[in-house]
Lab assay of single mutants.
Amino acid sequence: MRVFPVYAPKLIVKHARIFLTGVIWVKDLGRLEFEKGRFLLPRKSLPKVKQAILELNELIEAQN
């Protein structure tokens, strides 16, 4: 598990694309899981977490 002390979308996306499957922890967002290079949306999450995951997945799609 990698810990990101700040929310840096480009760096987080780079990590997810390299490792494809895993878990990261982002300060103020908490634990985020990714599989096959995409972030998974938890069943229950705060609106800011949901927005961050959608933003990260959009960045991943834009890079493909």
Rank of each mutant, 00 (worst) to 15 (best):
D28E: 09
R43L: 12
N64A: 12
K14R: 13
V26Y: 01
L32K: 00
S45Y: 09
N64H: 12
A8I: 14
F19E: 15
K27M: 15
R43N: 10
F19S: 12
E35Q: 11
L56C: 03
R43S: 10
F34M: 06
Q51H: 13
G22M: 03
F39Y: 04
L46S: 12
K10A: 14
R38C: 06
R2K: 15
E33W: 15
G22I: 01
F4M: 03
F19G: 04
Q63V: 10
K48D: 07
A62T: 12
L40V: 11
K36D: 12
I12D: 01
F34Y: 05
P47T: 12
W25N: 04
K10Y: 14
V6A: 05
I12K: 01
P42I: 05
K10Q: 13
Y7N: 03
V26Q: 01
N57A: 02
P47W: 08
V49W: 03
D28R: 15
A52P: 01
R31Y: 12
A16R: 00
P5V: 09
K50H: 10
V6E: 06
P5N: 13
L11D: 12
E55I: 06
V23I: 13
F39E: 01
L56E: 01
N64I: 12
F34V: 04
G37D: 03
F19I: 14
H15S: 03
T21D: 13
L29K: 03
P9K: 05
F4H: 02
K14E: 15
A16V: 15
F34T: 01
L41E: 11
E55Q: 10
K27N: 15
L59W: 07
I12L: 05
Y7T: 02
T21F: 08
E35I: 10
K14L: 08
R43V: 10
L59I: 10
V3D: 06
V13F: 03
F39M: 03
Q63I: 09
K48L: 08
A52M: 06
P47H: 12
K50S: 08
L41Y: 11
A8Y: 09
E58C: 08
F19R: 06
L54K: 13
A8D: 10
R17M: 13
R17P: 01
V13Q: 04
Y7K: 01
A8Q: 09
E58P: 01
A62G: 09
R2S: 07
F39K: 00
Q63H: 11
A52F: 05
M1F: 03
V13A: 13
K27E: 15
L40Y: 06
Q63L: 12
P5Y: 15
R31E: 15
I53M: 03
R2H: 15
L29N: 00
W25M: 10
R17C: 05
E55A: 09
R38S: 10
K27S: 13
E58S: 13
I18L: 13
L54M: 11
L54W: 11
Q51E: 09
T21R: 10
V23L: 08
L59S: 04
R2G: 08
L56I: 05
H15P: 01
L56H: 00
Q51L: 09
K48R: 12
G37E: 07
L40I: 12
I18H: 15
L29F: 10
N64D: 14
L41D: 08
R31K: 15
F19Q: 14
K48I: 08
E55R: 07
V26I: 06
W25S: 04
A52H: 05
G30F: 04
P5A: 08
I53V: 13
G30R: 01
K48G: 07
R43K: 14
Q63S: 12
F34L: 05
V26F: 01
R38K: 12
I18E: 15
I60E: 03
R38A: 07
K14T: 10
A52Q: 04
K48V: 07
L40E: 04
R38H: 14
L54N: 08
L41F: 12
W25H: 06
F4W: 03
I18V: 12
A62L: 11
